[in-house]
Amino acid sequence: MSKAHHRKKHPEAVRRQLLEVAARLSLEKGPSSVTLDAVSQAAGVSKGGLLHHFPNKLSLLDGLFDDLTEKLDRAIGEKMRDDPEPKGRFTRAYVAVCFLPEGMADGEQWKVLTVALISEPHLRERWRQWVERHFAENVGTDSSLDAVLVRYAVDGLWLADLLGAPSMDAKTRAAMLERLLTLSRA
């Protein structure tokens, strides 16, 4: 009997490794470099092992999407639990997680996903559903025009950071953060 049958399996670790390798390949060489062959080879996982977790490239991107939005949900939920003021709570949590470049864990993977969102209609629809779900859950507290404006401003800054637009100095960024937080309470 081969050693493979005696070796301990760690499917979640393999899945995580495959997602990390796919993200790294996409960042280093572009989204077109993310092929099943390239990912399995770079991860040191057989193609059959990869196919066990992700039967095609879109399922790999879906896996990355699921992983990142689950982390985003957890981070936003934690910030919301720490905020005693109901009005604008979701918006302030969104600002806290997404406004500062270091606020969002897995920033490199988010870059990959953002590029994939632009090129994959299926993922754009999933993102739209994520946003709509959160808007619906927070309609009583975060549906003012000011709250919507704050979230769009944060999205714009996030995209500017992602694309490497000229960054603003720390003082301007801090002033913008304060203004957005004030608007979230309006």
Score class of each variant (00 low, 15 high):
Leu163Gln: 14
Cys98Asp: 08
Arg89Glu: 10
Ala116Asp: 04
Thr141Asn: 14
Gly164Ile: 06
Tyr152Phe: 14
Pro121Glu: 06
Asp155Gly: 03
Cys98Phe: 09
Arg92Asp: 04
Glu78Val: 12
Met104Ser: 12
Arg92Thr: 04
Leu163Lys: 12
Gly164Trp: 02
Trp127His: 14
Leu117Trp: 00
His134Ile: 08
Cys98Asn: 12
Asp142Leu: 05
Leu163Glu: 14
Thr91Lys: 01
Asn138Val: 03
Glu78His: 12
Ala96Trp: 02
Thr141Ala: 12
Ala153Cys: 04
Ile118Gln: 15
Lys79Met: 05
Ala160Val: 11
Trp130Cys: 07
Glu120Phe: 06
Phe90Gln: 07
Leu113Trp: 04
Val97Ala: 02
Asp106Ile: 00
Leu162Glu: 02
Leu162Tyr: 02
Ser144Ile: 07
Trp130Asn: 06
Gln109Glu: 11
Trp127Leu: 14
Ala153Tyr: 01
Leu145Ile: 14
Ala153Ser: 08
Gly107Cys: 08
Ile76Tyr: 04
Gly88Phe: 03
Val112Cys: 12
Gly107Glu: 10
Ala147Glu: 02
Leu113Cys: 08
Lys111Ala: 13
Pro84Ala: 11
Arg81Gln: 11
Arg81Glu: 13
Cys98Trp: 02
Leu123Gln: 04
Arg133Gln: 08
Lys111Pro: 02
Ala116Leu: 06
Ala147Asp: 03
Leu163Trp: 07
Leu113Lys: 08
Ser119His: 15
Leu149Arg: 05
Trp127Ile: 11
Pro101Gly: 09
Arg151Pro: 01
Ala153Leu: 05
Glu137Met: 13
Ala116Ile: 00
Leu100Pro: 07
Glu137Tyr: 11
Glu125Ala: 12
Gln129Cys: 13
Val95Trp: 04
Asp161Asn: 11
Arg133Pro: 03
Arg81Pro: 01
Val150Gln: 00
Pro101Leu: 07
Pro166Met: 04
Glu132Ala: 15
Gln129Glu: 15
Met80Ser: 06
Trp130Met: 07
